[in-house]
Design a protein around this nucleic acid. Sequence first.
DNA 1: CGGGTACTTGACAATGGTCAAGTGTGGTGG
DNA 2: CCACCACACTTGACCATTGTCAAGTACCCG
Lengths: 232, 232
Amino acid sequence: MLSFLENVPLFKGLPADQLGRIAGIGVSRVYRRGETVFSDGEAADGFYVPMRGRIKIFKLSPEGKEQVLHIMGFQEPFGEAAVFSGGRFPAHAQALEESLLIFFPAPAFVDLTRHDPTLAMNMLALLSRRLKQFAGLVEQLSLKEVPGRLASYLIYVSDRAHGAALIELDISKTLLANVLGTIPETVSRVLGKMATEGIIEVEGRRIRLIERKKLEELSQGASFYDEGGGAR
Amino acid sequence: MLSFLENVPLFKGLPADQLGRIAGIGVSRVYRRGETVFSDGEAADGFYVPMRGRIKIFKLSPEGKEQVLHIMGFQEPFGEAAVFSGGRFPAHAQALEESLLIFFPAPAFVDLTRHDPTLAMNMLALLSRRLKQFAGLVEQLSLKEVPGRLASYLIYVSDRAHGAALIELDISKTLLANVLGTIPETVSRVLGKMATEGIIEVEGRRIRLIERKKLEELSQGASFYDEGGGAR
DNA sequence: CGGGTACTTGACAATGGTCAAGTGTGGTGG
DNA sequence: CCACCACACTTGACCATTGTCAAGTACCCG
């Protein structure tokens, strides 16, 4: 576990003995595909860092509609906010696939943080970045229509692959719909329309970006999971 | 300024000498109604704490549509996220009225935070609470229709006034529309409809909640600026 | 007193959600 | 190893919510 933890950005720059203490309070847990990690409103007793697998963080409406806030993977902590503001998880977390998570109990971790300025600053940086991502998400959901959000997402995936024109979605289109704040039918239709217009080519989860320019116009500059904003 | 700072929640629990240092790096600035405090994407050189007045934090679409993320008032810091994740403000900030802000330059404040665990923990708590609020905002915008959001807002204002049935909006309906992710026309119509149905009475900015039960049904439990969530 | 803004109301349009039906596919258990 | 089932995906018809455009009134500030 130590060799994993020392590469987690949240723990960057920490001396070996401190990493040891962190490893000392961490507990690994395995979750099956579809298994719930925690639920909205549940008392928060700690947070998690994935070693393997991916976790969907989402809100649920009473009617069962779901809005994905984040998909957390390798080395991406989640549930930390609940640890420092005392109390309850603000959303649901569910494993998208078999996942191995390291769980850190809140009281012990808060204690370590209080006595380690580097760890505290790392955590402040993490929460701050997350806050910016949320501002970007709100922007997407409130100020853009579905084609714009979809275009943003495609560009985001392409950029993650160093700007490749041929991309492969790593989530189902149903899940993508819940990320974009819409439903599978609408995703299907919008992808179809873009394909008809020659902007993209779709073959299952494989999508080729033909006219990146047009996508960038639709996305209006704001990208999905990074800060968004930028002088405009 | 000291007597103001010592009551700011962010600075609670700090010893007098530390408060003195914080006061030492703080600079007061006055903003006129409508004046810009900072802009989306601008390099962040510090953050602000209002002593007087209110500041609107918002995102802007290229077409000029605006989504309000927060309205910050007395003792509510804003712009802190940019300080700890380095870089740029993720949204616009504009004074709603004549405001007096204390500005804290990023480098000096980060330095104080690094050497003061209590301040660091307070800041972690603040960012965490903010994160939960964002999760609530996303929930509102993505999972609820306008009547639901409006009902949430009315209940929020009422609760802030200790559950009073007669409330007074402290923002214009146009601004309220931008908080709710809609437009003034729609706010007008929905208020009208609720009044017709006998759920509320509207007289300018004064609104009487007649059937709180109905509003709570519409709002589906989630309230606006607090964590939302809760076991359901 | 004048001008700009806030607010309201109406007619209309469009985005996108609902419901329904049908196809394909992967995983599991017999 | 195969059959079946659940689920992902697609497409069509329909409709609800809400945004756009336009016009008119009221009101606040200078």
